[in-house]
Amino acid sequence: MLKWMRTPFKIQEQMNALISWNGRKAQALHPIVRGALLHAIFIGIHPFIDGNGRTSRLLLNLELMKFGYPHYFSNRKSIGVLRCIRQSTYDR
């Protein structure tokens, strides 16, 4: 499993590991589990000064939407972003 405790001087390395994990090992997991882990690990890395929570929720919702699950929160701004993602990615 990934080590995802926050260490600011290793953010790039941790993000690369997260991307690699999500592209390979995570694919064997159920989409809900994968989305939850993606959310938790991203929050643990905490790569931005602001917006880590919003970004991690969008990552979780993107994983859910890929497999037809509904999004899990109802923030109006986030719903707008999710609609844009869905239209640009899945309605081609």
Rank of each mutant, 00 (worst) to 15 (best):
N75R: 07
K25S: 10
A36V: 11
P31T: 07
G23C: 10
K66D: 14
P70K: 11
N52R: 05
Q27G: 03
Q87G: 02
T55Q: 09
L60P: 00
A28C: 10
S20C: 12
A36S: 13
F48H: 13
G51P: 01
L38C: 11
E63Y: 00
V33R: 05
R83C: 11
L59S: 02
K10D: 08
E63D: 07
N61Y: 05
T7C: 02
G35M: 07
E13I: 08
Y72R: 06
L62E: 14
P8H: 02
Q27H: 09
P47E: 12
D91W: 01
L37S: 05
I43S: 03
R6Q: 02
Q12F: 11
A28K: 13
L62C: 14
L59W: 01
R76V: 09
H39N: 12
D50I: 05
R54W: 05
R6E: 01
P8S: 04
S56G: 08
W4A: 08
L58M: 12
L37Q: 09
N52T: 10
I41L: 12
G68E: 05
N22F: 13
P8K: 01
I19M: 15
I49V: 14
E13S: 11
T7Q: 05
S74Y: 15
R76Q: 11
V33I: 15
R54A: 07
I45F: 10
T89A: 15
G35L: 05
L29E: 08
L2V: 10
F48N: 12
L29N: 03
F48P: 07
E63M: 02
Y72W: 11
C84H: 08
K77H: 14
R57V: 06
L29V: 03
N75G: 12
H46N: 08
W21V: 00
I49D: 09
A36I: 10
K25T: 09
L64K: 01
M65D: 04
G80A: 05
R6L: 01
R24G: 04
R24C: 06
I85G: 00
L38F: 13
Q27T: 11
I45W: 04
I19S: 13
A26L: 03
I79K: 04
I45R: 03
H46C: 11
H71A: 15
G23E: 11
N52P: 05
P70L: 13
I49W: 09
G53H: 07
P70D: 11
M65R: 07
L64W: 00
A28V: 14
I32R: 04
L60W: 00
G51Q: 07
Q12W: 03
G53Y: 07
L18P: 00
L60F: 02
K10V: 05
S56H: 02
S88V: 13
L38H: 06
G44M: 06
S56L: 05
S78D: 13
K10N: 09
L37Y: 10
M65I: 15
A26N: 02
D50N: 10
R86C: 00
A17Q: 09
R76I: 08
I45M: 10
F9H: 15
A36R: 02
G53P: 03
I45T: 04
M15D: 03
G35F: 04
T7R: 03
L82H: 00
K25G: 04
